Structure formats: structure tokens, C-alpha cells
Simulated scan of single mutants.
Amino acid sequence: MHDTMKESGRTGPSKGSVPEKMKALQYSGPEKFAVVQIDVPQIGDDDVLVKISACGVCGTDLHYHKGEFLAKWPLIPGHEAAGTVAAIGKNVSNVSVGDRVATDPMQPCLSCFHCTRRKPLLCDSLTAFGGNVPGGFAEYCRYPARLVHPIGDLPDLEAVLVEPAACATHGIERMQIEVGSKVLLFGCGPTGILLAQLVKMNGAAHLTIASKGGPKLDLARKMNIADDYIAISDTSPRVQMDALASANPYGFDIVIEATGAPTVLEVALNYVRKGGKLVVYGVYDESVKIAWSPFKIWENEITILASFCSMGHIPHVMEYIKAGKLKLEGVVNKTFRIEEWEECLDVVRRQEVVKAAIAFD
């Protein structure tokens, strides 16, 4: 079918292979959503239509829910999608109908000030699938062919982690970890679990995870992805935080803040050793402000850097997966239908799951 469609120049699915209508979770405004029946997306010559199998739920989706970031109405969220190629445009050659794929949700314009200076991640006109164009919380989604990547027999609930792992891979590039480094990671949510594994494979001699106790930290221990695990109490966090400082009087070469909690980010600076790096990785409300001592940063020559998301890193992630180096099984531990979105939001807000995903038949 792949070759036939290319030769015939057809840009859509063959008649009868894809329905005309589909179910989708659609927002009409901040916190206003419904499951709707809408047209299946049309594709162009360079596009792919993906039948979505599953799509991960990310903390960013909670921001989109409130109308933040790139949210544009009407909005179909979902940026961690995996599925099967249902149709291809006539110019597409990298995938075939029937291929199972993971999707990259970020499409730079390639012509703005930043794109032309080889910084596409900072694009002024970024197209974000699941943000300002329809995403993966629907039965079908259109993507440019270059944004879909074959995943072979990788299970759906592991495939939805490919995109967040790509973000973590970009973070590793930003950190430039020196061989033999001591690293402290605050937070072990799904992103933290992926980051931890990549940190250990890319220069860190010793990794400490500090996180509130619960299923996420329990999973991190079970997966054996760090050298030390510190359970931070909700009621008396100062006890564990002081003990962490005492046990590491020279601090850490790299401290990664991946909780998204401003209070944690503010104190994280205190654990960076002289000449070390603080990595701002978590997602924070745009209105958040924190206080750091510029003298401390200056005197100790501390580098503060951030990692936004991925840009073209899925092939790198797939190399780790093919080599059996990146552990993904069990991270997604709860699935929901789009009709259960309200329940899913509540569970994610209350942090009762390690990772949730929307699943389709």
C-alpha cells in the first residue's frame, strides 16, 4: 500500500481504511473540555496519519488545561503519542502504512531568527502538536512525516515514554556531565526516572535521588537506577535535607531540579559544589519567582542552566532502547479512556500514579 500510494500521488487513506469521523478530547477554552466527534484530519503530500494507540499524560497537560503555554483553542491535547501509520502522503518514504511509530510533537518553522542560527528549539513560531495544533488525545492525528519514528514491537505503554526520554536526552546534552561526576537529582517522577538512567550512562560516577516517598520513589528503588535514595518527608523535610548536606560537605558537581516545586529549586542551589552546575529541568508556573544570592553564584562560579524540551532526539532515544539500556517497563502504571479525562486529571494532580496514559482500542 505504501508504494501504491506513492505512485498514484494520493495524499489520503484508501477508501474504507480510515473512518471519516473520530472521537477526540477537545478544549474550547481553559478548563472547558468535552469528548467530541470530529472529522479525521486530512493529510498533505509530506504528512502521515497516525492511528493513536496511547498517549502519555504530562505535567505540561495540566498547564494546557488552564490555558497556559502555547494553548490555542479549540485544542486537542496530547504530545506523547504512539500509534500505527494509517495513511501517508505521496512524498513520504521514511515510514509505511502499518508501521508502529512514536511521534515528535515539536515542529520548528526553520526560517525565523533562531532557526536560521541553528537553534530550532527556540523557534519564534513553534508548532506544538497537542498545544497549538491538534495532538494525540484523539483516535487519529496528522504529523509531518519527519516527526514520526518507527518503534518496531516496543509496547504502547513504553512507547509513550519515548518523547519524554527525548526531552531528557536533550537535558543530558545541556549538562555536559564530566566523567566521574557526583550528581543530585531532586524528583523521581517519570521524567526523573528517565533522567536518572541517562545521567548514569553519560558520565556520572554517583547519583543520589532525593524525592518525597511514595510509589515513584519505590519504583526508582525497584529499578535500581541510582546509588542513593533519600525520602524527603512532607512534614519535616528539613531533617532529611540537612542530613543530605552533612553527608556531602562539598556538595555535588551537578544538581538537577526536576520536581517543578519552586521551594525545592530555591534551596537546590545550596547543594551545588563550587564550580558546579544547577539544572532547571522542572516545569513551573510562569508567575513563579524565587530568590538566590547572586554573590554565592558569583563567588563559587556556579553555572545555572535550563533544559526546555527535545528537538529531534527520538532517534537517539531509540538507540538506547534497541541496546536494552533504557528501562521503561512499569513507569506507566495507570491508563484512562478520553471519556475518563476528569478522573485522570484528578489522579495526576494528586500524584497517585507514577505515570498515566490515555489509551485507545
Rank of each mutant, 00 (worst) to 15 (best):
H79S: 07
A82S: 15
L121M: 12
A128K: 08
P134Y: 02
P108K: 06
V85W: 10
R146E: 14
D47R: 04
G78P: 02
T84E: 14
A138M: 02
A102C: 13
T127L: 12
H65G: 00
H65Y: 06
G136P: 06
I76P: 07
F137N: 02
G89K: 06
K66M: 08
D45K: 15
L75D: 04
V50N: 09
Q107H: 12
I76T: 12
P144E: 09
L75A: 02
T116I: 08
C55I: 01
G135E: 00
Q107N: 13
P105V: 15
A145T: 01
G59R: 04
A138H: 04
A128T: 09
V148E: 01
H79G: 12
N132M: 00
V50T: 08
A81M: 12
L75C: 12
I88L: 11
H79Q: 07
G44S: 14
L121F: 09
T103Y: 03
G89Q: 02
N132H: 03
T116S: 12
E139Y: 00
F137P: 06
S125T: 10
V133L: 02
L49G: 04
F137G: 01
A81L: 12
C112P: 03
G136V: 09
I88F: 06
T60C: 10
Y143W: 04
G89A: 07
D61L: 02
D124M: 11
C115S: 01
R146P: 05
I88Y: 13
G136N: 03
P120Q: 11
M106V: 15
V85D: 14
R100Y: 06
P105F: 08
P77T: 05
L62M: 13
E139K: 01
V48L: 02
P105G: 07
V101T: 05
I52S: 11
D124L: 14
R146I: 13
L110R: 15
T103S: 13
C58T: 02
F129C: 05
V50S: 06
R146W: 12
H63I: 00
A87Q: 07
T127Q: 08
A102D: 05
E139C: 06
V133D: 02
I43T: 10
L62N: 04
G78D: 03
D45V: 09
I88D: 00
P41F: 06
T127D: 03
L147M: 12
D99T: 10
V95E: 09
D47E: 10
V92Q: 10
V92M: 03
K119E: 14
L147A: 01
A82W: 13
R142P: 01
A128N: 11
P41D: 10
G135M: 04
W73R: 04
D45Q: 14
K72N: 11
G78H: 01
R100L: 14
V101W: 11
V48C: 05
L121I: 14
T84V: 15
C55A: 13
S53N: 15
K90P: 09
L122Y: 14
Y143E: 01
C109G: 07
V57Y: 07
A54M: 11
C55H: 10
P74L: 03
E139V: 05
P150D: 08
Y143D: 05
D61G: 00
G98Y: 04
A71G: 04
